[in-house]
């Protein structure tokens, strides 16, 4: 079956077997291997990507279901060679060890910060509760998400100030 799906802003057309799971499509057909697979019961969250802006587990969505939809993977976080604040915060705060859960964790955290730019620790822990990490004990992940939230608020503030300085409306 032919599908058209936008991944990280780029439109792909592909022929997929209906039973192909989105995670495998991303990894094996689009070569976006940042999305990992860690379980067979939709538990671990290593394969978390954004589907129309919301985190979902791509091992439990069919690739054909992405036809006409937008997907964002870890490879789409960086823009213009600049790490996303979440990426740099994960680095600074030692929020990863083996790195296998990291892409899914980043996407789940990204989803959270889209809707809740200043989450509490408890809200972060709840939002990431579908993503298992076996290495970090989550402490530094929570810290990094807080760090990223501050960075992003700072960026927004900068953008507002810049816009104000240049006289354009920020509405």
């Amino acid at each position: 079956m032919n599908i058209r799906v936008k991944v990280n802003g780029r439109l792909y057309e592909a022929d997929v077997e209906p039973r192909t799971l989105l995670a495998y499509f991303l990894r094996e057909q689009l070569n976006l291997t940042g999305t990992h697979i860690g379980c067979d019961t939709t538990t671990c969250g290593a394969c978390t990507v954004l589907f129309d802006g919301k985190p979902i587990k791509s091992c439990t969505v069919l690739a054909v279901q992405a036809d006409g939809h937008e997907v964002m993977t870890v490879e789409g976080l960086e823009s213009n060679g600049q790490l996303h604040p979440l990426q740099s915060a994960f680095w600074e705060d030692h929020a990863l060890q083996c790195g296998y859960c990291t892409p899914g964790m980043l996407m789940a955290a990204y989803g959270l910060l889209q809707t809740n730019p200043a989450p509490t620790d408890v809200e972060i822990r709840e939002a990431l509760s579908g993503n298992i990490c076996r290495c970090t004990g989550y402490m530094n992940i929570v810290k990094a998400v807080q760090n990223a939230a501050r960075k992003m608020a700072g960026e927004n503030q900068e953008a507002i100030e810049e816009a104000a300085a240049s006289g354009t409306s920020t509405d």
Binding site: W91, L96, P103
Partner: peptide
């Protein structure tokens, strides 16, 4: 000091066995 392995891992550019194609 920050880890040297992180830049690839946070970009989804780690290379695990299942990534070997």
């Amino acid at each position: 000091i920050g880890r040297k392995e992180d830049p690839r891992l946070i970009r989804g550019k780690g290379h695990y066995v299942d990534d070997v194609m």
